Simulated scan of single mutants.
Amino acid sequence: MESYIINDRAMNKQDPNIVQKSRKGLVVFFAWLVPLTFLSYILALHVSPIFGLLLMWSPGLSSVLTRLLLREGFADISFRFRGNLAFKSIPFVLLFPVIIGLLAYGFAWITGLADFVHTDNSYIWSLVISIVYQMFVGTLIGILSSASEELGWRGYMLSRLITAGVPKPILTSGLIWGVWHFPAILLGSYYSGPSLILSIILFMIAISSFNFIISQLRLST
């Protein structure tokens, strides 16, 4: 079984064999991803919304099927902890969305762009309890759906974009990740506000920025 561990030699495109195999892997990955995504939308819209879970699992399933078909192995998924480096990253991972959320919603509340609705003086404790709950219980629940996207986007596509010599692989992966969500935006799942175009632009800015953070975490840990 072949292993695609990212190293300086591969990133500098000094091994044409790895470059060629990585590009082939990307082709096969997208060959699985596109029909799985299309099928998931059809089933979710016409059979049951539960197939939305299949949609979220389509990137991960595509990466697993590609690995099996091309006999690439699974060593580079990196499920193992890397000592202190990984443990030092966990507090950042848990606090990052909290900080971003407080900054974004805090600005909206202070400026009046959004209303902060509460029923009594205990709302602060309710907010704190909700944040703590989402950080831990919400994270565990979210793994059921989002883990597959990580297996596909950061666990496979990003590493192959790097070893294939694609320019600006992190930015490219973020744009692909964002475009993959376009049907959901057009169907109203991510669409909020008076302008569809503005929603798409802001979504692409947000998801590309977020992708930069989690891609760096994936590559460094």
Score class of each variant (00 low, 15 high):
205 I>W: 01
190 Y>K: 10
182 F>L: 10
209 S>Y: 04
190 Y>C: 09
189 S>Q: 11
206 A>P: 02
193 G>L: 04
189 S>V: 09
189 S>H: 07
209 S>V: 12
198 L>C: 14
193 G>R: 03
213 I>P: 09
209 S>M: 11
179 V>S: 09
192 S>F: 01
196 L>V: 14
207 I>F: 00
197 I>N: 14
195 S>N: 14
195 S>K: 12
179 V>R: 13
203 F>L: 13
191 Y>W: 03
197 I>D: 10
192 S>T: 10
197 I>K: 14
203 F>W: 12
210 F>A: 11
205 I>S: 04
189 S>R: 08
179 V>G: 09
207 I>H: 01
198 L>A: 15
197 I>T: 15
210 F>H: 09
182 F>T: 12
211 N>H: 05
189 S>I: 07
194 P>Q: 05
198 L>E: 15
201 I>L: 09
179 V>C: 05
207 I>V: 06
202 L>C: 09
194 P>V: 02
196 L>I: 13
199 S>P: 15
203 F>E: 09
207 I>R: 01
206 A>V: 06
212 F>R: 05
180 W>P: 11
200 I>F: 02
198 L>W: 15
195 S>L: 10
207 I>D: 01
182 F>D: 10
206 A>G: 05
200 I>L: 04
210 F>S: 11
180 W>N: 10
199 S>D: 13
197 I>Q: 14
179 V>W: 06
183 P>C: 00
188 G>N: 02
202 L>F: 06
179 V>I: 06
193 G>H: 05
211 N>E: 08
190 Y>S: 09
186 L>E: 03
180 W>M: 06
208 S>W: 03
204 M>D: 11
200 I>Y: 02
213 I>D: 01
180 W>E: 04
183 P>K: 06
213 I>S: 00
182 F>M: 07
203 F>T: 15
191 Y>E: 04
207 I>Y: 00
197 I>Y: 12
212 F>P: 13
203 F>I: 13
209 S>L: 12
